[in-house]
Write a protein that binds this DNA or RNA. Structure first.
Length: 467
RNA sequence: GGGCCUGUGGGGUAGCCUGGUCUAUCCUUUGGGAUUUGGGAUCCUGAGACCCCAGUUCAAAUCUGGGCAGGCCCA
């Protein structure tokens, strides 16, 4: 129904037809979350908020504008962003004395304030996060929800700690949170430490989460940074230690963006449209009554009864009462990825059952009326599990492991990697060695080194084309 | 960063080369009505478009320049 061969085309068609995101706003890289898309976003963020708050994070909200001097304070950091900052230069007709940046990210804004908040070790740790829009003046191709000029959803967490060890543990916690988050969404990920040349500007090191899209390109969907004392030194985040001395705080930050929404769509979707994990589906169950003349009222009544039952269970349920043919409704809701559809018709009433259709496997089966409650709950679990498993398998097919020895000539490695990238797409894993782990190799194979990762107990360099 | 291409109702298109026949084609969408309903029904009747600015010309959807927006290829 929708061509899966051309991912790019499939993706834009889904966004439009499933009413997730409207790309037609007249500014490059800026679009609109439509109600349906917005709900997916909200339920996704609900999960993330829950996971963060369970582990002691608190939500805050910082201003969009950052004065130039503040943004420029950390040398390495600003270098990483200066070419892509949007500037507010005027107030009305008057030029501003200090230009104001639309935040490309909020480290500098937040750390300026942290200085006011931190005096002694008892003020630590601080674990805060916010969900905001950020801006990057992208010159390359923008892509809806993947490469935006206005990133509408950026969940950024920032922490400050009394010791390096604590910060290190915080990095681990963040990784755990994100792992759990992606697990909930059924999005398979690879976790790797980014190479020096590709880490977050100003960070000591960066750990990144990547998944692989159906076209075989890798995409970064989460990052965790250990900032050490880089920022705390420039922002003078000094505190009195337990022993009465002075030290600068140790910081971490980690972020998730709109790309998660793009991933939910891309990773699980099929030729019929979206397939949504139940936790983030705006409508979890849709009831389609089959209205034959003469038997209309009975069916409608039973549908309403069922609706009330599910509603009481806290399920997001709707009845589709539109006066169009059932087939049309089926396609409509399948396109939108509704996980479960329940059909009720005269035949079902006779047999005291309902007909259930699950979106992920496209199976249809009957359930006795009295078993519906239990069935739906366990079905949600089965759907989650199945989607996760299927996505994992799909990604595995895009992971190619190559085996080289220390004396394999570099040219041969390059040749093999290029060949495999071309034929198999996805990512190529090369046994770790220093001569391979260099920017030089990226140029030779015309792809990026995502980093170093553990895979099936061995250490590999991960290479792939990225978004 | 360099190169190529495109812009017509909400979406997809025909027309553009060779200006006039355009009151702009077809599919989809959409309002109203009839009929139908276990996988995209049908009929009747309405609605809806030449990206923006300037230029050439008696005349521009069509030609020229610029802007904006989008797509593709190479680094």
């Amino acid at each position: 129904m929708i061509n899966l061969e051309n991912f790019s085309e499939w993706y834009s068609e889904i966004l439009e037809r499933a009413e997730i995101y409207d790309v037609r706003y007249p500014i490059k890289g800026c679009g609109i979350y439509l109600p349906y898309g917005f709900k997916i976003r909200r339920y996704t963020l609900d999960i993330l908020r829950r996971l963060l708050e369970e582990r002691g994070h608190e939500e805050v909200l910082f201003p969009l504008l950052i004065p130039e001097d503040l943004l420029a304070k950390e040398g390495e950091h600003i270098k990483g962003f200066e070419d892509e900052v949007f500037w507010v230069t005027h107030g009305g007709k008057k030029p501003l004395e200090v230009k104001l940046a639309l935040r490309p990210t909020s480290e500098t804004a937040i750390y300026y304030m942290m200085k006011l908040w931190i005096k002694v070790h008892k003020d630590l740790p601080i674990k805060i996060y916010q969900v905001v829009n950020t801006f990057r003046y992208e010159t390359k191709h923008t892509r809806p929800l993947i490469r935006l000029r206005e990133i509408m959803t950026f969940k950024e967490a920032h922490t400050a700690h009394a010791t390096g060890e604590e910060a290190e543990n915080q990095v681990k916690e963040a990784i755990e949170i994100y792992k759990e988050f992606f697990h909930e969404l059924g999005i398979p990920v690879m976790v790797s430490r980014r190479p020096e040349w590709d880490k977050f500007p100003g960070a000591q090191y960066t750990v990144a989460f990547d998944t692989i899209f159906p076209d075989g390109r890798a995409i970064q969907i989460g990052t965790v940074h250990n900032l050490g004392q880089n920022f705390s030194r420039t922002f003078d985040l000094e505190f009195e230690t337990l022993e009465g001395g002075k030290d600068y705080v140790y910081q971490t930050c980690y972020g998730i963006s709109d790309r998660v929404i793009a991933s939910i769509i891309a990773i699980h979707g099929d030729e019929k449209g979206l397939v949504l994990p139940p936790q983030v589906a705006p409508i979890q169950v849709v009831i389609v009554p089959l209205l034959y003349k003469g038997k209309r009222e009975v069916v409608e009544e039973k549908a309403l009864e069922l609706y009330k039952l599910l509603k009481e269970m806290g399920i997001r349920v709707e009845i589709d009462n539109r006066d169009i043919r059932p087939g049309r409704k089926f396609y409509h809701w399948e396109l939108r990825g509704v996980p479960v559809r329940i059909e009720i018709g005269p035949k079902d009433l006779e047999n005291k059952v309902v007909t259930i259709y699950r979106r992920d496997t496209e199976e249809k089966y009957q359930v006795r009326k009295e078993d519906i409650k239990e069935e739906i709950l366990s079905l949600f679990e089965r759907i989650k599990e199945n989607m996760r498993e299927r996505a994992r398998e799909r990604m595995e097919r895009y992971i190619t492991t190559l085996d080289f020895s220390e004396d394999t000539p570099l040219e041969e490695i390059v040749k093999e990697v290029r060949k495999n990238l071309k034929e198999r797409k996805g990512v190529i894993l090369i046994p770790y060695s220093e001569r391979v782990y260099s920017e030089d190799l990226e140029e030779k194979v015309e792809a990026s080194i995502l980093g170093v990762t553990e895979y099936k107990g061995k250490k590999y360099v991960v290479v792939g084309r990225t978004y």
